[in-house]
Amino acid sequence: MMTLTSYLMISTFLFLCGLTAVIARKNLIAVLLGIELILNASALNFVAYTRFVNNNLDGHIFPLFIIIVAAAEAAVGLAIVIRFFQIRESIHIDDATQLQS
């Protein structure tokens, strides 16, 4: 039951859900939710491999940094979303056209 393959399947499923959400959603916050899923999938992979393949704890360090990066990304990303909403009164991803020349 608890084999490496099952963990990898779960993390692959998480990753694919996140990828589909990022592509299919048109709401900026929903896109950020998909990115969180992708980051979690990668962190889960690190911990699973360090448990089943090699015995050192390096695989526990990577998820910590991934979580840190995810927190920073969420903070800055949501700040940008709020600022974008103040300017364009919308968080639709297709309205973000200001940088177009």
Binding site: M2, Y7, I10, A43, L44, R51, H60, P63
Partner: peptide
């Protein structure tokens, strides 16, 4: 899942 993998701190 982390708990089942023994990664309590994570």
């Amino acid at each position: 899942l982390y708990v089942t993998l023994g990664a309590d701190f994570v």
